[in-house]
Amino acid sequence: MYPCTALEENDLVTIWQSKIMAAIISLFISAIHTGIFLLNRWRLNAIETAELKIKASELQEAVMRSKLESLKMQLDPHFVFNNFSTLTELIYEDQKEAASFLENITRVYRYMISNSNKDTITVKEEIEFLNAYFYLLKKRLGEKIDLQIEIDSALFALHLPPLTLQLLVENAVKHNTATLTNPLTITIFSDSGDIIVRNKLQQTAGKSLVSTGIGNKNIEFRYKILSEKMPVFSESNGYYEVRLPLI
């Protein structure tokens, strides 16, 4: 066996260096391909996650809009029943009053039908509707209730969700006592660009201020969808007050 010459040793070193370099290059290229693959997978996952979030958001919005539509135009069924009972009595007792009462019932339902597709209504239109609605209440309860409205006319063109004022008046009548000796007065006025609905606390024993279905939760839900500002419900010095931001 012949010993390796210096030239052969150099050749072996060169061969091993070439193999090592080839292996390093191969690993480097493999690392690049793996990195690109992982980057693409991350990007695809990020896109899929974003799309899922968008779809979830769209679905949530659709659900909320559906709920909004179901809450937007509701009247207490007892109010409807009481109106027709009162109308029946008036037809027999005073036909002129019955005609006026029927006209206001028509105004109430015309408002509901014509605005059923609207998310908001002007303050002016809401007040006109509220006056017709309160006329019907007043005809049934007489001097037991009173409504005072003092709103700056500069706010008439601004908006709020339909039936908001009606729901608050309805709640006030529903959850407070109202008698001839202790009538219930509901005051609606403007303050710093908002509308305030206030009434003295004359609660009926065992009844809560928070209504279910068409009360405060209804109003809060609609504001949550339509505006960044939320209504504020509070009690102070024997009064219940709701501050409504305008849209």
Rank of each mutant, 00 (worst) to 15 (best):
V197E: 00
L201M: 13
N10F: 14
S70L: 04
E125R: 14
K224A: 12
V173H: 02
N237L: 14
L52C: 08
T204H: 05
Y239R: 02
E9C: 15
Q148I: 07
G193K: 08
F37W: 11
Y109G: 00
L75A: 01
F129Y: 08
L102I: 06
T204I: 11
T179S: 09
E93P: 01
S70H: 03
L44T: 08
E128N: 12
I149Y: 01
D191T: 06
E126A: 14
L209K: 03
T181Y: 14
L209P: 03
Y133V: 01
K19D: 10
N45G: 15
T122N: 02
L180H: 07
P231R: 02
P161S: 10
L130Q: 03
V242T: 13
S116K: 15
Q148P: 00
M1P: 04
T5D: 11
V210G: 01
F81K: 10
W42F: 15
V242A: 12
Q60T: 07
N10Q: 15
S100Q: 12
V232C: 06
R107Y: 13
E228F: 15
I25D: 12
I188V: 13
I54D: 05
K139H: 06
I195L: 05
L27C: 12
K118A: 12
T177W: 06
P245Y: 09
P161M: 14
K224W: 10
K224R: 12
G213D: 07
L71P: 00
P162V: 11
G206Y: 01
Q166T: 04
Q166S: 05
T164V: 13
F221W: 05
F156T: 02
S114A: 14
V210M: 12
F79A: 10
A172Q: 05
S26L: 14
Q60F: 05
T5Q: 02
L163M: 10
T88E: 13
I29S: 09
S30A: 15
